[in-house]
Design a binder for these strands. Sequence first.
DNA 1: ATTAATTTTTAGACACATCTAAATTATAAA
DNA 2: TTTATAATTTAGATGTGTCTAAAAATTAAT
Lengths: 217, 217
Amino acid sequence: MLTKSEENYIKEIYALEQKHKADVNTNLLAEKIETKASSVTDMLKKLAKKELLIYQKYKGVKLNSKGEKIALSVIRKHRLWETFLVEKLDFSWDEVHKVAEQLEHIRSEKLTNKLDVYLNFPKVDPHGNPIPDVNGKLIIIDAVCLDQFEIEEEGIFIEVKDESENFLKYLTKNNIVIGAKIKVLEKEEFDNSFKIEIDRKQFNISENVIKNLYLKK
Amino acid sequence: MLTKSEENYIKEIYALEQKHKADVNTNLLAEKIETKASSVTDMLKKLAKKELLIYQKYKGVKLNSKGEKIALSVIRKHRLWETFLVEKLDFSWDEVHKVAEQLEHIRSEKLTNKLDVYLNFPKVDPHGNPIPDVNGKLIIIDAVCLDQFEIEEEGIFIEVKDESENFLKYLTKNNIVIGAKIKVLEKEEFDNSFKIEIDRKQFNISENVIKNLYLKK
DNA sequence: ATTAATTTTTAGACACATCTAAATTATAAA
DNA sequence: TTTATAATTTAGATGTGTCTAAAAATTAAT
Ligand SMILES: [Mn+2]
Ligand SMILES: [Mn+2]
Ligand SMILES: [Mn+2]
Ligand SMILES: [Mn+2]
């Protein structure tokens, strides 16, 4: 039986492993969890003792299959709840993440699976992130980061990585919503910003925005 | 910002006040919370310091209006979630209480109120207990405990107090479900058991069962 | 290959919620 | 009204998760 804190560490380690395709280091994890490096070290020792990850002093950390399974279970709950909030309770996509951070720790397999049925086995959440199924399997999203696009190339926006409220509100304001067709018009070398077109409107977006948008070519 | 533990104490104190119509004493509270009396004392001091209740050494405890408001908010969430689980996710009435004990601590007024809307402002939960509205107001259930019934008297079962899984399964097995018409046939003086009739079937129920059933005359 | 800078870990402390055992107060019995 | 019993509180300890400050290991720079 894991605590909420332990689940959050496991979930964050999983996310960082996916993002960096490498072992996770202490400082980065501390930043993400919003805690101090010393606290991270303590927790890693505990989780290593529980055999949920491989931890070697000064060498970073990596989930084992038991840890990965837990990560996927928490992510499954998080994304199912986000989907529920948007689809059934009429939340907007920028309001759901914080609430889901709480709901993801509710312990009831029956609840999770009944929610899945009720939502008709959704494959992705409101941010386009894949939802692990009851066995922890998730579909591969065939999406490419916008920073990989050439000038004049276009695609459909299907997944966003940053789920912070401010960022999602900014996207909404600029019609950058899931399903929108985005065309790259210009690239600025000096700051890596793009000029893009959506719905015949043209405007500039910064590198920070670009890196969080994933499109289907 | 209250902890889960603090919320549970507040909720339990409220329930005991309602049941006994008197100040709540330490040992009873300890039993209900499933902890030790010394832990209860510690917590009461803390909650008194936060000005959620009136506590005097050796004299018992009583919520003030701030504490009552919190109790009602937790109860509101608990009962809305139970209703959701039964109405939308197809849980049975004996499966929901434990899950609701977790869900009642989710912090989001928006979620609670949207859930209320989604369920169409239910007045009672699956056990017939009234659900406080957004202002903490709850309807008065016009129900009388079965132990107050005379021989040959009958009524409609509308509220159950004990929500333990085993008890509710026992009731279901014997067709004692919300809405059932129950008639008292005989009373046994020596053990306070009743012989009752439901759906033309007759059987005996113990005092323990009787005390938890509330009917509309 | 040393030295300097950065990262990570250890040591020691604290708040929270819990416990056991002992002391205190209230209540019931003689 | 004294004594015994029961209820309640206090004292001191533990486990969890966090922190700051200091020590140790790793990595980068000279
Ligand atoms: Mn999210
Ligand atoms: Mn999401
Ligand atoms: Mn309940
Ligand atoms: Mn209920």
